[in-house]
Nucleic acid binder design. Structure first.
Lengths: 154, 154
DNA sequence: TCTCGTTCGTTGACATGTAACCAACCTACC
DNA sequence: GGTAGGTTGGTTACATGTCAACGAACGAGA
């Protein structure tokens, strides 16, 4: 077994490429963890915040579950479970959909609005601290272009 | 309730900044999902692959659990659980550590070696397809620098 | 109106991550 | 020696996410 046959494939990453790939992975976790920790200090997880802010885009803070899930790119199942947890914390509540007997509406409670109004500025600050303000305008622009290239085809 | 008091905070993101931030988030999921799907086609998750490849760095494919966990930046607990699942699939097995009555060794089985030898080239190809080959050499270099700036301080 | 296929949201089984826990170890001091 | 205190080791309990399957409600067409 493994008679030290470790000849790398022809397409193996060069040292530079490998280095960049690892740096990329570190960056992703660094930014993610940084932002998540700041939100956690406010008692919110990233998904929590995403749900609240997406719901708040509607003036009445209301949306059907499936529409909300589509908007966020989540499965209905995931949103359903997450909504139940947020409902238990009284950040949102469910209401029957008057236009569709199958559906249900997710509604921001006034507590939900309050929490969001508190959290939004902090979150912006957090994104600045961990991301925007660490880069020059040119770097931001370049990163934007790169990100688009890497996202293309999804 | 939300008497339409939506005056943005003073430090709100500019349109460009917000755009870049969202592009960044899309990029992260795109790359992550792409690579994960390619591995899934081989019956491996990202963590699976990470465990196999890290173990294989030892010529005998053996390491104590805690050492392996440290090397990967995982908690012992997380590795213990994951190891159990991989053990059930016979990719690795546990053995008692002769030098420490408390410890245990993780050992690559020959099946594990086989799977890894199959997967490694595919994974490199995948990283190329979703990441390296989509960018010019300059872009890679720039991204590397940016990634370092965003990771600094962790 | 009845039927058939689709869509809605929920749920059960399972995967996976984190945090609390007990046990074994090591060192220093008696 | 033995034993107390702190450290290190791995597992168990719990939170959270995914996938597949379900019953209920919808809607198009016979």
């Amino acid at each position: 077994m493994s008679t030290n046959e470790t000849a790398p494939p022809a397409n193996w990453l060069t040292s530079d490429e490998d280095h960049t790939w690892r740096a990329y992975l570190r960056m992703v976790t660094a930014v993610q963890v940084g932002v998540a920790q700041d939100l956690a200090a406010l008692g919110l997880s990233e998904p929590d915040y995403e749900v609240l802010s997406t719901l708040s885009e509607r003036e009445d803070g209301t949306s059907t579950l499936h529409e909300q899930a589509a908007k966020m790119g989540w499965s209905r199942s995931r949103l359903s479970r997450h909504a139940s947890r947020m409902e238990a914390r009284e950040l949102i509540r469910r209401a029957p959909d008057p236009t569709d007997g199958r559906g249900c509406l997710l509604v921001l409670t006034s507590a939900g609005w309050d929490v969001l109004r508190d959290a939004a500025p902090s979150h912006v600050t957090s994104v600045r601290r961990h991301f925007v303000d660490r880069l020059s305008r040119e770097e931001l622009a370049t990163l934007g272009r790169i990100a688009q290239k890497l996202s293309a085809g999804r």
